[in-house]
């Protein structure tokens, strides 16, 4: 075959594969949109949680997955978003819809405060600092008057029946999730994404080659924080009551890291796979907890944290590229054979 012909043929297959992918994505989005009106209420709620975690995990993945800078305090930005919405809405009478973008902006500002001192340094210092900050923020929110202290904030509720309410939040989270996944997809295929991966692979040469690593890492953190802040604001309206223990719980940070890791760090598909997988695992563990014997009584439900920690260790050691790593290995084998 002549090379021109070959080129035209590969261009055609490439175009076709993009077409198929586009159609597949559109079908998936359509299906998810229709689900919102078809399935029962508790399923709608569960799926909303899945979408919310995908947003957080995609946001986390930008810095954590592509650039390898692990943020162990993702909940900080989520919580800042939730509280921004809560405080603005209840204390300053800002319109709820307006509080949502403002929450994203506040979370971004918080990310600047964390990122500027920490992102000039190597990943380990950043990681430990994020952990510390999420604890400090929790203490701060518990002790401030404006946040209602330990007693929290009651959010205004929407003037609809419960089912309509749930559907509204379903579509809100769905829209945000699509945005987050699209953003991750674009980043992964952009110069920005390649530069982040270069930072993960080896930061020194990347720096020498003129990659402005500190600014890139900061941008990645800010983008993730914005997504988390918006998700936090929607979450606040959804749960209708926020308080520091739950809203700033380390469990959320752990979940986000684990979900991204299990799905596959540094891939836009990772969170989409990891989040449902881990939420189902958590559900199974909760059911098991009621049945397994544990020193004469049944297991307390908190035992899922221990199991999650063990999964985190095992996946990090044995399958550091998560499900996507396995998929790629299988696919790679098929291509080379």
């Amino acid at each position: 075959m002549s090379s021109a012909l070959l080129e035209r043929a590969t261009a055609r297959t490439r175009w076709r594969s993009w077409l198929y992918r586009g159609l597949g994505a559109a079908a998936a989005v359509g299906l998810l949109a229709v689900l919102g009106v078809l399935i029962p209420l508790d399923w709608v709620t569960t799926l909303s949680a899945v979408y919310m975690y995908i947003v957080l995990a995609e946001g986390w993945n930008i810095l954590g997955g592509y650039a390898g800078y692990l943020n162990f305090g993702m909940v900080t930005f989520f919580g800042v978003g939730a509280y921004t919405a809560g405080v603005l809405c209840t204390q300053y009478n800002v319109h709820p819809l307006l509080t949502i973008p403002l929450a994203g902006i506040m979370a971004t500002v918080a990310a600047l405060l964390v990122g500027v001192p920490a992102l000039r340094l190597r990943g380990v210092y950043f990681a430990i600092l994020t952990l510390i900050i999420s604890f400090l923020t929790q203490v701060l929110v518990t002790n401030l008057d404006i946040t209602g202290g330990a007693s929290g904030i009651y959010m205004p509720s929407l003037p609809f029946d419960p089912f309509t309410n749930e559907q509204i939040f379903y579509y809100a989270f769905l829209g945000l999730m699509l945005l987050a996944v699209l953003l991750a997809f674009i980043i992964e295929h952009s110069r920005f994404g390649y530069a982040l991966v270069a930072i993960r692979e080896d930061e020194d040469p990347a720096e020498i080659l003129g990659v402005r690593t500190t600014w890139l890492k900061t941008q990645a953190l800010l983008l993730g924080a914005f997504l988390a802040g918006v998700a936090g604001a929607i979450y606040a309206f959804h749960t209708s009551y926020i308080e520091p223990q739950g809203t700033f719980s380390l469990d959320i940070s752990i979940d986000v890291v684990l979900m991204s890791l299990v799905g596959g760090l540094g891939t836009w598909q990772g969170p989409v796979i990891g989040v449902p997988l881990m939420l189902v695992t958590a559900q199974v563990l909760r059911i098991l907890a009621g049945e397994l014997p544990f020193f004469g009584s049944t297991l307390p439900p908190e035992f899922d944290r221990v199991v999650f920690g063990i999964i985190l260790i095992l996946v990090a050691l044995l399958a550091p590229y998560g499900v996507m790593g396995l998929v790629r290995r299988v696919r790679g084998r098929r291509l080379t054979v």
Binding site: G68, L70, E302, F308, I313
Partner: peptide, 24 residues
């Protein structure tokens, strides 16, 4: 012997396990 990321994740996992076990 592995990457820094893996090390941090593993130790974070240790934190989660110890804290969870202590709560139990």
């Amino acid at each position: 012997r592995t990457s820094q990321t893996t090390g941090l994740l593993v130790l974070f996992g240790v934190l989660v396990v110890i804290e969870g076990a202590a709560i139990l």
